[in-house]
Each structure stands twice: as structure tokens, then as C-alpha cells.
Design a protein around this nucleic acid. Structure first.
Length: 883
RNA sequence: GGGCGGAUAGCUCAGCUGGUUAGAGCGCCUCGUUUACACCGAGGAGGUCGCGGGUUCGAGCCCUGCUCCGCCCACCA
């Protein structure tokens, strides 16, 4: 009968249970220490993707573990209005419907936007619930909430009043499609191969010529100079003279500037201050006029040259080149590979344009952010991102925060009829300086990142000293992808310090990027994105979470691998089988009460019980270390291995051997207690990673709490690590290895596993005392084999060794393969030779740490003893008998 | 142009400050349906750790040069 773990029916039940129990809700009056994470708010532009599944799963894992450790946990969820991204999405939708936002009008567009936020915001939260995330749903935040808007305006006003925000004409990255400026961080650089044109200009004063190289001939209509490198001998005679530009017949100066790379092209640079960032700076150094020849929609704005006027810039490029070619000015063309900036939201090629924008002066803010990280108060994980952050901060440039789009937070600035410009928090009726009531509001909106940069404190009500702000700020960990270290993380650190005087968080965990199967980047445009919800349907939320958590903290980018998710799904089933199918159904006869045994007296614990407890101690320590270092893959792998292999494959098999033994109730009790204890510990350790299956299993065990979230995080018990346990641990480890060797011998001789009567063994130990009867029976039970007192006369046994144990193995009706014995001897001889060589090396003995040398000596002694044993047995073996 | 990361089994990846015979999952081969689990169990094959030098008693790990791949930054004409 199919009794596999059915996540599809289990998951909704537990999601509802956690909601009922208020697991995610943080109590503001709690006296516990707090642990806080501000969820990086997803953009409301569609569905969650794998990046979210990974970073959010890690956060939920941290939160669940901290709750078990006794923290009051606040994981504050929210969403980001993502102005430019959302506007683009809706504009695309409108385009599909054959209309535009301009045709719709602002008011109708706004209705459209709100409907979008309503639908997709809700959808995102629903997706998060399906993943099993325990956010504080009572404290959801949105960057367009009134309180949030208040925080933004106060920050803006403060910066404005301090002179840290200013407005001015500068060259900006302009997206002709979005019709807006964007910041340096929002540029997507792509490689292009374009023709590099060489243009030959006549020099006015002496009839000579100067040739410049450019990929953008159309901008020469706005050129106002020609620059060469200082001291360039080729052009020495021309510096200070003038060149005449064909087509416009403008006369421009030839001068020296350090920005010119003499080795590029001809070493002479046409300077277009209006449409190139470098040229803009050169122009400002030499007081060149700025001529805009490209309009905000990306078409040529040159009324005096009607043949080009109104033409899209990329077409004008060809048209101008053609015109110059005809005039004989275009003297050379060659292909040139270079990088071209695209809008990271819509992909349009950006046009550098000079325009009035709002800027934030960064140096003083950056100094704060640099100090917090240099001092170690804020730590990046992996640590290598520290330098990435610092080098960006140390070279920071002013931040363009104004956008010319419809959606977003209006820049809270007005100008009165008398020209007074002031920032405000509540919309003013009159000028704060002169009382004039004819106010003009600034038409621009703020960069989305300006508002998200306030997230960790704005969500808790700052600037009001709300109970939430007092209790939950600053937060602890920030978990996000590396693509927004500059856009978001750095800005939160700066604003946090500037406005609250405190670091907004202490640990920044940068997660691995999940790539497509072929190693390429997952992106909607490539159509290779994977929907986390489909994976939940296919493998269950636990499997997806365990995989995402393990992979996301490895520090290394990772290709998507469905097989690994499937492995965790099988793991969930394994846990279900051993708990429900074995412990409860078989051992407990269907009732958890039967499993509720009193702790046994320590002296009734058998070696295998102590071995299992010793393994628990190790896995608890490894798990704690994994959490401490934000290395979840270590923890998950250890838990997988211990649960499946140590517990299910070995310990439970050992337990089965004695359940049927009615003559020893104390042993049965010790086994049941140890098994239940071990499983309970493993389930608690696994719970932060795989919350559904662990809850479902834990409910079947005695004295279950309503949720594992109300249980404590496991700690190592003294019983698990005492001397008796350590000794027993070694004994069982050797026994296990011996079992494996005997099984292999059986397999080599074509004995089907389970042919217990055909495999007869005598187990001995080399310390003279002999193994306990219990160990012999344990080994025989596991192989399985029959323990005999003596082998039949005339039959030569195969001897196998493990540590201080060895077994004489006889397989009925089958002659022992002499090669099997020889292989063992050969391996041991090689070991002895290697160790003897190593120990004969004085450098090793003197240089290596004592414990390494001691271990080598111990292993040499053991190998020699094993070798002696095997040789003794072989001397009377089949080889001699045959000769 | 500068910087960071990667190259380990057929595939996807672990391997912490240098120290047993380099591990896991999947895949592959052999055997097995004995009442937890065939979404399973048992046994096994498979790796000169990208290439060349070097340091060390000892190198997958440290140094150096090189080759590919990915990413970030840069005034990218």
C-alpha cells in the first residue's frame, strides 16, 4: 500500500496551524532577547523567483532556529512599489492592449497601478505562505504606506536642509524609452561591435588636418572641441589652434586634456560635452559650451540641419557617416568592440544627456558606511564582499535620485512665485519664506532605491519612537543577493547611520546565485526561469527549502539541479517512514503512548545506544557551527547523513535485533528510549530547514508540543559524551566496519544477502579479552550470519579484520577465494610500508603535530597486528593446502 | 584596463586554519521484494583534484606563471 509522505495534504494543515498559533508574530512586550530580520521587500512586478525562494528560505531557517533558541523573533515582511519596474510592466501590458499611459491619462493609470499592486502584492504573500515562511504577517509593510512616505519625506527634507541634496544640470544616463534619468548603478553594460569611424577635420590656422576616431559620428553635430593628450608630440603644433567641423561648420578649439588616451585611435578626441560623460568633464575643465543635439525621446534635435532633425539617433549615426563619407571627411572605418549602456529595466540603449536632476552628495554619508564595515561592526558573509563594498564606497559618486516617470514618491519640494524653493513633509499651502501661495511642485519622483534605502527603520515607524522601533531596531541579519549590494545594502547602512545613529544590521549574508541548468543566468527574457511554486508541487516545500538553504549559503554560485531537490524529497519520505511506519506502527503498535518510556538507567544502555548518542552530540555541534558561520550546507548535509545513514541504516537495524527479544525488557526500553530521543533531536535540528515533515513526524512522538517552534533547540547532554559513551562508540564503529567486510566477502562469493545459515562466523578481538557475546551477536545479526563456536574440520575460514576485531568467516558449500585473503594482505602491506616510511622520516616526526604522529604510530601498530593475524591464518590456508 | 570567484568521479557539488586510503547526491554495474521505506536495502566500479614551476617532512588546500569559464568595477572616445 502506498504510504509515502504526502506533502500536498500535510503542508496546508501546518501553514494553518502556524497561523493559528501565531508562530510568526513577535510580542512587543516579550522579555526574551529579540532577533530581527527585515525581509528584503520583493518588487511587486510579478511572481517570486528562485532568488527569492533561496534568500527567503534562509531567513525563515534563521528565524525558526532563533525561536527555538529562545529569542523573540521579528521577521518583518513587506513589498516594494518598485516605481520604474512596475511602470514598465504596466506599460507593456497597455501596449499589448494597443494603448499607452498617455492615452489613458494619469488618473486612470493610477487606478491601473493600484489594481496591480492589489493583485500581485497579495499573490506574492500567498507564495511566501506556501513556502512555509513564518513572517510577522501582522506587521506587513509597503513602501507606499502613509507612515513610510512620512519617513521618506523627513529624510529628504533633512538632507535638503543640510545641503546634502541639491538640484543641478549635469550629464545623466537617460533612458529614451522610460523618458527618465537613471543612476549609475542601474546601467546594464553590454558588449557591442560597432564601426569606429575616423573623421578628418581641417585646421583653420594652417591648412593642416586633425583626425579623430569615434563610434558616434552623429554626436559630432554637438562637438565643441578636439582634445589631445598633454605633450603628444604628434599634435604639438596644433594645440591652441582650431578645427572646422564639417556639416555644422562650427570652429572649435584644439587643446590638451589628461583624459585623452594617446594610444587610442589617432590620439585625438572629438569632445561632445552634451552627450558623453567623459566629454562633459573635459568640457567643464575647458569651459566648452554644451550643445544638446539629441532630444529626450532619443531623436536628433538639430533644426538647422533638417536632413537629420527628428531622426532617431541610431539612424542618424549612419546618415551622418554617409554624409561625411561623401564629403571625403570619413577616412577610415574599422570594427570596434566596446560596451554600451542599457537601461537595466527595459533594455533600451541609454543616451547620456545633460539635464536638471536631483542629487545626493555622498562623501559624508559614505564615510559613515565605510567606518561601520572597516570597524567590523557590520560583517559580510562571505567575507570577500567586504572589499567589494568598501571599494565602491571609497569611490562613490553623487547619486542621481530624480526620475521623470509617473509612478513613485513625488519629490517633496515646491517653488513659490518669488523663486523660493523648499522641501516639505506635509504639502504646504504657502511659501515658508515669503508666504506666497502660488506654489509649483517639483514634477519628478524619487528613485525607488531612495525609499527602500530606509527600509530597516522606516518599517518600524521611524521617526516616531514607536514601541516597534524601540524594540526591533536595529535588526540582526540582512540576507540578500549580491546584485544589490550597492543599490540597496550600502544605502541602508548609510541612511541607518545618518538618521538613527546605529548600524541597521550586524551581519550581511550574501547568498549564492542560482543559475540555469546550463550555467547561464536565469532571466525572464531568456525564458529559462523556474517557478518555485512548480517545484513545491513537484517535490514539496521542504525539499525546495532544504536545497535552497543548503545551496544558498555555500558562497558559490550553483547550477539548478532538480535531482538534488528530489534527494531531499526522498529524505522527507525516509523520515516519514522511520517515524510513522517503523517507530509508531511497529514499535509502538500504532500508539505514541507505547513509545513514552521512562529514561533507562545509564547502565542498561547498550554500546549501540551510546554510539547513537555519541553521534547525536557530534551532529548538534556541527549544526551549531553551521548556523554560527552561516554555512547551512554543512548543517544540512550532516543532518541528512546522520538521520538517514547513522540512524535509519544502522541504529534502527540494530534496534530491530532486540525488539523481538522478550527476555530482556530493560534492553527493549533502552532501545526505544534512545531511538525516540535520537529522532526527536534530529527532527528539532532539521525543523528550521524542513518545517513540514518535521512537524508531522514530531506529532507522532510522545508528548508532542503543538509545534516544534515551541520546543527548545537541542543541546549536547553529558550522557552523550561521557567516557563510557566514547568507549562504546569506538567499539561499535569497529563492529560496523567488520559487518561491511563480512557482507562484502559474502557478496564476493555470490551468497545472496539474507542467506544467514550459509554464512558462519566467529568473532574475536585481539586484546585477549575477546569481544562480548553481545557484539558477536550484533555483528551476526547485521550481516546477517550465524555465530558458531567452531568451524567444521578441514574448512579454512576467510579472516577479515576491522580495528581490534576480526572475524573468521566460512561460507557453506563454497570454497574461499584465496584472492580475497591476498587482497586484504596486500592492502595492509602497503599501509605498513607507507607508515613506516613516514615515521622513519625525521622531518615528519619532528615537524608534524604530536597527535598526527601518534595517530600514525597507532595505525602502524594496528596494521602490523592485523597483518600478523592474517598471515598466520593464511599459512594454513588454501594456498598451502593446494600446493 | 583593474578586481573577485570557479576549474575535484559521467553529471551537480562538498572538502574548515596543509596531516589517515579525497567525500556526497544523482547516474552506472551486481545482488535482494525478510512487514518502516523499491521514493528502499546490500555490495561495487569510477578521480594523476585544469596545466607548468616552487615552498614544505608532507600540497586538492600555500606561492608563482599559464589556459579556459563566470561575475563585478572602470571617464567604456
Amino acid at each position: 500500500m502506498d504510504n509515502h509522505f504526502d506533502w500536498a495534504s500535510v503542508e496546508p494543515r501546518w501553514r494553518e496551524r502556524w497561523r493559528e498559533l501565531g508562530v510568526g508574530h513577535a510580542d512587543i512586550t516579550s522579555t526574551k532577547p529579540v532577533y530581527v530580520i527585515a525581509l528584503p521587500p520583493p518588487n511587486i512586478t510579478g511572481a517570486l523567483h528562485m532568488g527569492h525562494a533561496s534568500t527567503f528560505s534562509i531567513q525563515d531557517t534563521l528565524c525558526r532556529q532563533r525561536r527555538m533558541r529562545g529569542f523573540e523573533v521579528e521577521w518583518c515582511p513587506g513589498t516594494d512599489h518598485a516605481a520604474i519596474a512596475t511602470q514598465n510592466v504596466i506599460e507593456r501590458q497597455l501596449a499589448d492592449e494597443g494603448t499607452t499611459k498617455e492615452a489613458l491619462g494619469r488618473a486612470a493609470f493610477q487606478v491601473r497601478v493600484e489594481a496591480w499592486y492589489e493583485e500581485y502584492g497579495g499573490r506574492i504573500y500567498e507564495q511566501m505562505r506556501r513556502m512555509g515562511y513564518t513572517c510577522d504577517w501582522d506587521r506587513m509593510r509597503f513602501t507606499l504606506d502613509d507612515a513610510y512616505v512620512h519617513s521618506i519625506r523627513l529624510v529628504f527634507k533633512t538632507l535638503f536642509d543640510e545641503g546634502l541634496v541639491y538640484r543641478g544640470p549635469r550629464i545623466v544616463n537617460w533612458c529614451p524609452r522610460c523618458r527618465s534619468a537613471i543612476s549609475d548603478e542601474e546601467i546594464d553594460w553590454q558588449e557591442h561591435t560597432d564601426p569606429l569611424y575616423y573623421l578628418k577635420y581641417p585646421v583653420v590656422e594652417n591648412g593642416a588636418h586633425i583626425t579623430v576616431a569615434t563610434v558616434r559620428p552623429e554626436t559630432m553635430l554637438g562637438d565643441t572641441g578636439v582634445a589631445v593628450a598633454p605633450g603628444d608630440a604628434r599634435y604639438k603644433s596644433l594645440v591652441g589652434k582650431h578645427a572646422t567641423l564639417p556639416l555644422t561648420w562650427r570652429v572649435v578649439p584644439i587643446f590638451e586634456d589628461a583624459a585623452v588616451r594617446p594610444e587610442f585611435g589617432t590620439g585625438a578626441l572629438k569632445v561632445t560635452p552634451g552627450h558623453d560623460a567623459t566629454d562633459y568633464e573635459i568640457g567643464s575643465r575647458h569651459a566648452l559650451p554644451i550643445i544638446n543635439v539629441i532630444a529626450l525621446d532619443g531623436t536628433m534635435d538639430v533644426p538647422s540641419l533638417p536632413q537629420f532633425h527628428g531622426m532617431p539617433a541610431d539612424q542618424a549615426r549612419i546618415a551622418v557617416a554617409d554624409a561625411l563619407r561623401e564629403m571625403g571627411v570619413l577616412v577610415k572605418e574599422e570594427p570596434y568592440l566596446h560596451e554600451v549602456g542599457h537601461c537595466d529595466r527595459c533594455g533600451t540603449v541609454l543616451e547620456p544627456i545633460v539635464s536638471e536632476q536631483w542629487w545626493v552628495r555622498m562623501p559624508s554619508l559614505a564615510a559613515l558606511g565605510i567606518g561601520a564595515v572597516e570597524s567590523g561592526e557590520i560583517r559580510f558573509h562571505p567575507a570577500r564582499y567586504t572589499d567589494v563594498y568598501l571599494s565602491w564606497m571609497r569611490n562613490i559618486k553623487d547619486w542621481c535620485i530624480s526620475r521623470q516617470i509617473w509612478l513613485g514618491h513625488a519629490i517633496p519640494v515646491s517653488t513659490c512665485g518669488n523663486g523660493h524653493r523648499f522641501a516639505w513633509i506635509d504639502p504646504p499651502a504657502s511659501c515658508v519664506e515669503c508666504g506666497d501661495t502660488s506654489l509649483t511642485n517639483d514634477p519628478d519622483v524619487l528613485d525607488t532605491w531612495f525609499s527602500s534605502g530606509l527600509w530597516p527603520f522606516a518599517i518600524f515607524g521611524w521617526p516616531e519612537q514607536t514601541p516597534e522601533f524601540e524594540k526591533f531596531y536595529p535588526t540582526d541579519a540582512l540576507v540578500t543577493g549580491r546584485d544589490i549590494i550597492f543599490l540597496w545594502v550600502a544605502r541602508m547602512i548609510m541612511t541607518g547611520l545618518k538618521f538613527t545613529g546605529r548600524n541597521p544590521f550586524t551581519d550581511v549574508l550574501i547568498t549564492s546565485t542560482i543559475q540555469a541548468v546550463d550555467g547561464s543566468r536565469m532571466s525572464k527574457s531568456k525564458g529559462n526561469v523556474i517557478d518555485p511554486l512548480e517545484l513545491i508541487d513537484q517535490y514539496g516545500a521542504d525539499a525546495l527549502r532544504a536545497w535552497a538553504g543548503a545551496v544558498g549559503t555555500s558562497g558559490q554560485d550553483m547550477r539548478f539541479d532538480a535531482d538534488r531537490i528530489a534527494a531531499y524529497q526522498r529524505f522527507a519520505n525516509k523520515l516519514w517512514q522511520v517515524t510513522s511506519g517503523f517507530l509508531v506502527a511497529r514499535v509502538g503498535n500504532g500508539s505514541p503512548a507505547e513509545l513514552d518510556v521512562h529514561p533507562p538507567r545509564p547502565d542498561t544502555l547498550r554500546p549501540e545506544d551510546r554510539w547513537m548518542l555519541g553521534e547525536l552530540a557530534t551532529v548538534v555541534r556541527d549544526c551549531d557551527a553551521g548556523f554560527e558561520a552561516f554555512r547551512f550546507h554543512d548543517a544540512v548535509e550532516r543532518l541528512y547523513d546522520t538521520s538517514w545513514h547513522t540512524f535509519c541504516d544502522w541504529y534502527i537495524e540494530m534496534v530491530k535485533l532486540r525488539l523481538t527479544d522478550a527476555t530482556d525488557p530493560e534492553s527493549r526500553r533502552a532501545a526505544v528510549w534512545t531511538a525516540v530521543t535520537a529522532l526527536d533531536v534530529l527532527l528539532r535540528l532539521l525543523h528550521p530547514f524542513m518545517p513540514f515533515i518535521t512537524e508531522e513526524c514530531a506529532q507522532l512522538l510522545p508528548n508532542a508540543a503543538p509545534t516544534l517552534q515551541q520546543r527548545s533547540w537541542p543541546e549536547v547532554d553529558a550522557l552523550w559524551t561521557n567516557e563510557a559513551t566514547t568507549l562504546a562508540h569506538r567499539e561499535i564503529a569497529e563492529a560496523i566496519e567488520l559487518v561491511q567486510r563480512i557482507r562484502a566477502a559474502g557478496h564476493d562469493h555470490n551468497v545472496p544477502r539474507g542467506a544467514k545459515d550459509r554464512v558462519r562466523i566467529i568473532v574475536r578481538s585481539d586484546d585477549g579479552t575477546g569481544p562480548t557475546k553481545h557484539i558477536s551477536r550484533l555483528i551476526a545479526g547485521l550481516v546477517p550470519a550465524t555465530v558458531v563456536d567452531a568451524h567444521e574440520r578441514g574448512v579454512d575460514p576467510l579472516v577479515v579484520v576491522s580495528g581490534r576485531l576480526h572475524a573468521e568467516v566460512v561460507i557453506a558449500d563454497t570454497a574461499v577465494d584465496a584472492n580475497a585473503a591476498r587482497r586484504q594482505i596486500g592492502t595492509l602491506e602497503a599501509t605498513v610500508t607507507r607508515l613506516e616510511t613516514q615515521l622513519a622520516n625525521q622531518g615528519f616526526v619532528a615537524g608534524a603535530p604530536d597527535h598526527v604522529v601518534d595517530e600514525a604510530r597507532r595505525r602502524l601498530a594496528e596494521a602490523k597486528a592485523q597483518l600478523d593475524l592474517l598471515r598466520r591464518n593464511q599459512s594454513g590456508g588454501p594456498t598451502d593446502a593446494a600446493s
